[in-house]
Structures are given as structure tokens and as C-alpha cells.
């Protein structure tokens, strides 16, 4: 099935769901006036369903908008790919969403025009009310093939591996370069679907955790803190890095947290696979690895 056919399916289904009142709006993507850039949009009338698009640039996550503190939209229809479904699972687990208020239209996704989609292992959504089409296993999209995953710099933790390969001083310099260019716009925080605090610690600067000064050192404190806050709940969608206006390679931080969680647990670890699992730092094992004796 072509993207055009899938787009038509989406528009038809969105119009039908809106027309019979099953949902009050559809959260999907629209084309901006610039080629290659789409944006999340909210369609509320059946006749506006023609705004919805589906192509290799329908990249932004739809899930986070439903967790907006002012969300009063009633039952929302949400177009969800694998990554969106992991985000929904994670938000459900954190009691940021109510499942009854969601109608999830599942859209198997072969990957988008973005290198951060390459390691994605969740083409088909994990949670949905209906699936608009079946996953095309033959399609060679963004998913990692078995051989590809082992290639250096191509695996699930490609960005973390890149940094880990450096010596400790070079790692410090790598992040110095990143955080010297950071402008602390917090796009990475705000785009993150699991970053769901009502009030972020950086907005409580009187508490003293985070200086509002913009310099490499204070930006670095923000970067490491953010990694720690969301790392074990990270669904690996890559939005933080994708939205960075300065184009900073920050994905390594959260990838490192996941990688370390796996190493410490001695088992695979992936957040958002279901709406029940506790995050890594929210639980413990009596026989956890211990270097502090």
C-alpha cells in the first residue's frame, strides 16, 4: 500500500469517527507550507479530515498533547504509530492519561525520513482500538535489520556508543561542545512524551537546583538531570534530539541510561511496552548489582 492510499484511509476513518461522534477530535499531522515539514494538528470537523497527511515526514509525536494539563477535549481520537503507542503506555502507567478517554487509531509505520527512526523495533503499535492497515514486513523502511543492528554506529544505542568509544577526557569535551552550543530553550524537555511533570524543576529556580544562567556548565547540569529524570522511562522516539534547534546530538544521554539499566539488570529493558511495568528506578531487586560494599 502506498503512503497516498494510507493517507486516504486515515482521512476517511477520521471523518467517519468525527461524523458519528465517537471522538471529539482527531490528533494527527498536517502539511505546513514548507515541503518536508509536517506539524501536529487537531481536526474537529469531518470536513477538515482532508487536512490530515501521512508521509515520510509525519514525524512529530502525537501522544504528548493529550497529557496537556489543559486538555479538555473529551474523548480524543489519536493517530498512533509504534512510538506513539509506547508513549501512550508510559503516560497511562504514570496516570497522566485515562484509557477510556482515548480512541487509538493504530498506524503501522515503516520508519520516517530520520536516522533516529532506524533502530525502531516497534513498527506496529502496541496498544490500539483499531489498526488501519497491517504491517508490511517486506517494506524496507526505518526498522533495523538484524545485520544492520550489529554494524558499528547503527545499533539501538548508536549515539551512546559513539560517545562511549571516546576516552574520558574526550567524552567531557564532547559534551562541553554540545552544551556550549545549547540555548536552553527546553524544546527537548517539552517534546519528550514521558517528561510529564506539571512543574519542571528548572522552572523552580529559587530551589537552587538549576541556575538560569546560560553557560556550558549550567546547561550541562540540565542535560544530565534531564537524562536522569526521563532516561529510564525513555521510549526511544528520538524527539528530544529531533526538535533541538541547534542540532545537538543529545540522544546519547538517555540511551546511556537505558544501556546502563540493561547492564545492571542483566536483562533487556525497554520502556512503554505495556502500561503496567514500573520504570527501572521506581523499583529494585534484593540482589541488584552492588559496588558500594
Amino acid at each position: 500500500m502506498t503512503n497516498g492510499q494510507k493517507q486516504q484511509l486515515i482521512r476517511d476513518r477520521a471523518a467517519a469517527l468525527l461524523a458519528d461522534g465517537a471522538v471529539s477530535c482527531i490528533v494527527g499531522w498536517r502539511q505546513t507550507r514548507f515541503a518536508g515539514k509536517t506539524a501536529v494538528c487537531f481536526v474537529r470537523a469531518p470536513e477538515d479530515a482532508t487536512l490530515l497527511v501521512w508521509n515520510e515526514y509525519t514525524i512529530p509525536l502525537t501522544a504528548k498533547y493529550l497529557a496537556d494539563e489543559r486538555w479538555t477535549g473529551g474523548k480524543a481520537g489519536i493517530l498512533a504509530r509504534g512510538c506513539d503507542s509506547k508513549a501512550i503506555n508510559r503516560l497511562l502507567r504514570d496516570n497522566q492519561l485515562e484509557r477510556e478517554k482515548l480512541y487509538i487509531v493504530g498506524l503501522p509505520c515503516e520508519g520516517k525520513a530520520d536516522e533516529r527512526c532506524r533502530p525502531c523495533r516497534q513498527k506496529t503499535p502496541l496498544v490500539y482500538d483499531e489498526l488501519l492497515w497491517e504491517e508490511d514486513s517486506a517494506a524496507d523502511g526505518g526498522g533495523t535489520s538484524a545485520a544492520d543492528a550489529d554494524a558499528p554506529g547503527r545499533g539501538r544505542f548508536f549515539r551512546a556508543d559513539e560517545v562511549s568509544a571516546l576516552g574520558i577526557d574526550a567524552r567531557y569535551d564532547y559534551w562541553e561542545d554540545v552544551y556550549a552550543r545549547c540555548i536552553r530553550c527546553y524544546a527537548c524537555r517539552n517534546a519528550c512524551p514521558v517528561c510529564s511533570c506539571r512543574e519542571c524543576y528548572v522552572d523552580m529556580h529559587r530551589a537552587g537546583f538549576q541556575s538560569k544562567r546560560q553557560n556550558a556548565a549550567d546547561n550541562r547540569v540540565f542535560g544530565v538531570t534531564r537524562a536522569f529524570h526521563v532516561g529510564d522511562r525513555c521510549i526511544e522516539c528520538g524527539e528530544c534530539e529531533r526538535v533541538c534547534p541547534m542540532g545537538l546530538p543529545i540522544l546519547g544521554q538517555t540511551q546511556k541510561v537505558i544501556q546502563t539499566a540493561e547492564a545492571l539488570a542483566g536483562a533487556p529493558y525497554e520502556a512503554g511496552l505495556n502500561a503496567e511495568d514500573e520504570n527501572f528506578l521506581g523499583k529494585f531487586d534484593l540482589d541488584d548489582k552492588d559496588a558500594f560494599m
Partner: peptide, 25 residues
């Protein structure tokens, strides 16, 4: 504002945004 994420990208890349905060440390 529907799709707005509430980040500061627009302001910080703007050649004319000039709001600031004062603090002491």
C-alpha cells in the same frame, strides 16, 4: 497555540526578543 509545545526556541532564535530575568547567586 494548539500544537505549541511551550519551548523557548522561537524566542531564543529571534533577533528581536529581548526579555530577560534578573537573579543573584
Amino acid at each position: 497555540s494548539e500544537a505549541c509545545l511551550g519551548c523557548g526556541t522561537c524566542s531564543f532564535v529571534c533577533p528581536t526578543c529581548y526579555c530577560f530575568d534578573l537573579d543573584s547567586e
